[in-house]
Each structure stands twice: as C-alpha cells, then as structure tokens.
Design a binder for these strands. Structure first.
Lengths: 213, 213
DNA sequence: TCAATCACTGATCACCTATCACTGATTGAT
DNA sequence: ATCAATCAGTGATAGGTGATCAGTGATTGA
C-alpha cells in the first residue's frame, strides 16, 4: 500500500528525475496488476499523487512509459543471458539451460514480455499520435544478439544442424517465444503441468537444432 | 471501393441478418487494413452506411464483432487441418506439410490470428464492460483438437518421442505459434528469407518431435 | 531584488464506447 | 381497412480516454 492517493509534495528544483522514477514505478505496478490497456494515465497520475497533465512533462505519450519499462526489463534479460547464468552450452542440457532463462524471464515478467515481444511493432496512425518511426525496440535487438552469440558458439563446435546462424537463432527464439506467449495469452487453457511442459518444449527445440548423430 | 459512405437503405422487416453480415464484412475489411484497435465503431458504421448506435442492435460490444470474425476464421482453419489438405503424415515431410497449413493460415490472416491467438484471453474490468466469463474461445479449442488428433495418429504408429499426447500437441503448437506470432508482431525485424525460415522452423519442430533412430 | 526557470495544475479538446428515448416503416390479426 | 405491435434505425448524450494549453506559484542565479 504505497500508492499515495493524496497529493505528493512538489519536487525541488533539480529533482525532476526523481518524479520520473516515481511515475515509472507506479506504472509498472499498475500495468503488472491490471494489464497495460486497462490502466489510464489518470490512474497512474493518482497513484503517484500528481495531476494527469504532469505526466506529459516527463513522457511524450502514454506508450512511452510502457516502452521505457520494457527497455529496462529486457536489458536485464540480455544481461542474464550474456552473463552465462546458465553453464557451458556444449551439450543438449547446456542449450536447454540457456533457453530456460529466457522462458522463465518471460513467465515471471508477463506484462513486460507482452509489451516487448507480443505487441504490434507498428501502430498505424491513431489520428492523434501518428505512425512514429518504428525503429525496432533495442530490447528485441539486444536479446536477439546475445542469443545468437551463444548459439554461434554451439555452431562453431559443429554441434548444430546445418543452418545459417540467423535462421538457427530465429528458430530457437520462435520456439521459446511460442510457449511463453501462448501461456501468457491463454492462461485459461488446460496446459500440461507447467514444469513438464516447459522442459518438454525446450528439449524438443534443442533436439531439433541438434546435429543428428 | 464498395464501402458506402452514403446512407444504406433501411432493411425490410425480416432482413436483420443481412445487415449483420454487412457489418461483419465492413469490419473485417477495416480491421485487416488498419488493425483492430485503430478502427472505431463510428468508422465501421460509416462504412456500412448506418449510424453508430445501430451497431449495438446487432452486437453487444465492439469486441464481439472481432470475436465473431475470429470464430469464423478459425473454424475455417480447423476445417483445413481436418480435411487433410496435407497428405498422409506418416513421415517427417508429412508432419511438416500439416504444420505448414497452420503457419500459412496465420500469415495470410494476421489480423484474425492476432485476435484469436495473440490477444489476452482476459479483459480485466474496463469499468464499463466487466470481466465477462472468459470461456476459452471455441476457435482455439477446435484448432487444438484437430491438431491433437493428427498428432495422435503419428504417436499411435510409434513415430514420436516418448511424450503424452497433450504435451506433444502443445509443443508442436507452441513452435508454430512462435514463428507466426513473432513475424506478425515484428514485421520490421530482419528475418531470414521467409520461405527458408518457415521451412527450417517446421523441420526443427518435426525433428524435435520425431522419434530418434 | 527580480527576471528566468522549473514543477505543476485546472480547464478543455477531440475522440472513444455504449446507452437511451425516440421515430417511422412494415406487418399480422381482427 | 384498421391499428397495435414489432422492427430497423436515429440524434443526443453520458462518462470514459489521451493529449494540449495557458497559467500559477515556488525556487533560483545574477
């Protein structure tokens, strides 16, 4: 219960950045609880304890709040993948361990995952906010890059099927994304037991990419 | 150019169903061109040539229009999968051919696919339209059912890896969905050549599910 | 001391989905 | 032939949305 429904005191002169963080924190909380489209700018403002127009002093549009949260979350994912929290990936189990980090991240941060990987990359002119240059989100780029780097190691050892590294990476990514996004989008579906399902899917992917002996 | 921007004549007494179809046709066209969230009820009404409130004589909410379109589209997919437009699935290529029908359908009907498989299955109370019982969409159920049926045949012949049929189906489904949904959500991503990518991913999935010799 | 800057606000715009009271045309039963 | 009932359709409007704008004090450096 830290959402101030009363007014937050005016920030001192140089402390605009603080307020910015407060907004992001409140938005993250609300987005996570109610979903991105069910939360209004007025609700965010009230949670912070400021007026709704004040948000626009810190962010150009509502979407930009979500995008910033998403960028941060995925920077974290890229970091985790790169840090090698998984062990060496010289065998099937190694690949599975790495892919697992991705899947767990998605399921533990469903709202961020939705914003980053499941939302349409292009908003066609909503009358008010125009197309906007839809440069691919840095989060997608960096996550993909790390993934490719790890898989390239495997490939260099001749352990993968005969496939160019880009396609190889895109296949692995698709396989994980499919499971994560379906489980997020359809929580009511009678999924197999969670742990069993994840382990199976990761094994299927790894097996599919693995060089047959 | 068949969108009547002028008034459509009043329907005769028993012809309410006709108007309903006109609304669905106009909505499908607009949704496909501009995306589901960028089209307003006013725009749909104008395309049909009726007033905006009239829509609510035929559909309880805007979402219901999209849902009906989605139901129809996915009934078609289930039909295609069940009809065996793919040949027999007794070998790796056979599995690939079946999965291919699913992928092609998704990429050819991206907007329907988005509504059916990518949108959140739960709208948490938007104040106005309350939670609504989120029975799983029949489209998802029937598509999944057909897919499972086909894979069960493979399993019965002992051609799959050792995995219960539900998990097996969910893994295959996830693999295809991952590719389709990513390509839809991130059209700006530098994907591998389309045909090559699809073929590779289907082969990876099929290979992953295939019993190793 | 005081103009400039900064954090912030109330009022409002244009748009949205959805509801409501209402209007005519059409109909079937008397 | 009449006339109440039904049905297709409407204008006005309620209450929500994201975003804009002119303005208001507190704080600050010169």
């Amino acid at each position: 219960m830290n959402a101030p429904s009363s007014r937050s005191p005016r920030k001192a002169k140089g402390q605009g950045a603080e307020r910015r963080e407060e907004i992001l924190a409140a938005a993250l909380k609300l987005f996570t609880e109610f979903g991105i489209y069910a939360v209004s700018t007025r609700q965010i403002a009230q949670a912070v304890g400021i007026s709704q127009p004040t948000l626009y002093a810190y962010f150009p549009t509502k979407d930009d709040i979500g995008h910033e949260l998403q960028d941060r979350a995925f920077a974290l994912l890229a970091e985790k993948l790169a840090a090698g929290d998984h062990g060496p990936i010289v065998d099937l189990d190694g690949v599975v361990r790495m892919l697992r980090i991705y899947v767990d991240f998605g399921l533990e941060n469903p709202d961020m995952y939705r914003i980053g990987f499941m939302s349409e990359g292009q908003h066609v002119g909503k009358l008010r906010h125009e197309p906007k240059d839809v440069a691919l989100l840095p989060a997608v780029q960096s996550t993909y890059g790390v993934l490719r780097g790890e898989l390239a190691k495997l490939q260099a050892r001749g352990l993968t099927i005969d496939l160019d590294i880009e396609t190889l990476t895109q296949c692995a990514w698709s396989g994980m994304h499919g499971l994560v996004s379906l489980m997020i989008a359809k929580p009511g579906f009678p999924w197999s037991e969670r742990e069993h399902l994840i382990a199976s899917q990761l094994r299927v992917i790894a097996r599919g990419l693995w060089r047959g002996d």
